[in-house]
Write a protein that binds this DNA or RNA. Structure first.
Lengths: 226, 226
DNA sequence: CTGCATGTGTTGCATACGCAACATAGTTGT
DNA sequence: ACAACTATGTTGCGTATGCAACACATGCAG
């Protein structure tokens, strides 16, 4: 077993609570396969026609959506310690135009989906941990998606900014937060553009709603209701 | 056991593949509780401090988000045959300002989350079905949320409309689709307003991109790239 | 029939915001 | 020290679109 794989076992959230000593057994029991891809190579949605969950051991996988006219849009990226394909398990939807592509040289560990959800007849102790971890990851993504929708569905840019900063402040438990995004990334996240974001932030500072410097924001007062 | 509950067992996706004869055993084994709420009553996120999954037996539950200034926004609704609270399983986030409220007289069946994920020591046969069903429901919601983000993050209204109709067409497997939303609902979904939507649809018809009558749309040609 | 409610289409106006272009500061490499 | 690059802020312009107001059709109740 490669060093990279061992490292993944120790750090990847999918293997949370599973001891390193079980990992060889686990690999065999689940029928995992490790596979490497070159940059820009397409990762087939389901190799061997069995549904797989892909665990990114190293590198980065982009999830891309192709519409009925063949036009592609970038959906998300999955760095190492990430998982892809997990929500598609219950769906007969490899035909829905979802494409996975290695954004850089990437190694993936595939686990057959049904082996995670079905307990095996040896009832290996890690089965339960695996399915629990899978639930956790999907749930977390679910929360993240809901947050993003909550934010971007505000009608004005100012409301979007406030929703975003309010959420970050709630997470931080403080009215003063340092956000993990650069201005351009924040603009992308809020579905606006960088200059408009800068402009509106300046307006809000002028209006006394908040103060900021680079990535650090300080929420000052309740904004008047929309 | 109430008639309503029996009906839920027979129709709710959470009990897919579980025979009606198991349901009394299931209720006991899982420690389910049935509870009713009046209109506008708040449903505590976790009764008894144990995390619960709420299954809407009848009525409707609204999920509401409260920001740090106490301003509330409507997130989603969960009608009967729905589930709420499931995204919170992996998170210690009852403190994140998510509120559940009965939108009308509502009956809810609570199932402790850990009893679904952990196999019980009797290893009742339905445990596996339950966790599989829960997984499916969460995944489906995840896909729905991703779709919504994919659509609403387009920069122009025309692109949003095309993304939405493209997705519906993909689902229907046809360039001709009848959408399940009224104009106002569609406008809400696309994060725009009804008149702007009507206007842009008229423009697109004029440009020969599509044809439509009320809820039926016909995609005619590849729109030029943005 | 009349009146009211609902769903949809149309249009004029004002403006928030996308976009492009430029300015400034910090960082890195040579 | 200089160039090159990146991150952020600023500003002017044009327009897409939010909003409000009105028109029209359908259906339902009395």
């Amino acid at each position: 077993m490669s060093d990279m794989l061992i490292h993944a076992f120790q750090t990847h959230p999918m293997f949370n609570g599973i001891s390193l000593t079980s990992c060889q057994t686990l690999m065999n029991c689940l029928g995992c396969r490790e596979k490497s891809y070159k940059k820009d190579q397409i990762i087939p949605a389901s190799e061997n026609s069995a549904r797989q969950i892909g665990i990114v051991i190293s590198g980065c996988v982009h999830t891309i959506k192709e519409d009925i006219w063949g036009r592609c849009t970038f959906l998300t990226y999955t760095g190492d310690d990430g998982v892809f394909g997990e929500v598609l398990i219950g769906e007969n939807l490899s035909e829905r135009g979802i494409i996975f592509r290695a954004a850089e040289p990437t190694t993936v560990l595939f686990i057959p989906a049904d082996r995670i959800l079905h307990p095996c007849r040896n009832s290996c102790p890690f089965h339960h941990a695996l399915s629990r971890n899978l639930f956790d990851m999907i749930s977390r993504r679910n929360v993240a998606l809901t947050e993003k929708i909550e934010i971007t569905s505000k009608s004005s840019l100012r409301e979007k900014i406030l929703a975003y900063l309010s959420l970050e402040a709630q997470k931080a438990g403080s009215m003063k937060v340092t956000v993990p995004l650069s201005r351009s990334e924040m603009a992308d996240y809020l579905c606006t553009n960088r200059s408009a974001l800068s402009r509106e932030l300046a307006n809000m500072k002028k209006d006394g709603i908040l103060d900021y410097d680079l990535r650090t924001f300080h929420l000052l007062q309740v904004p008047e209701s929309k």
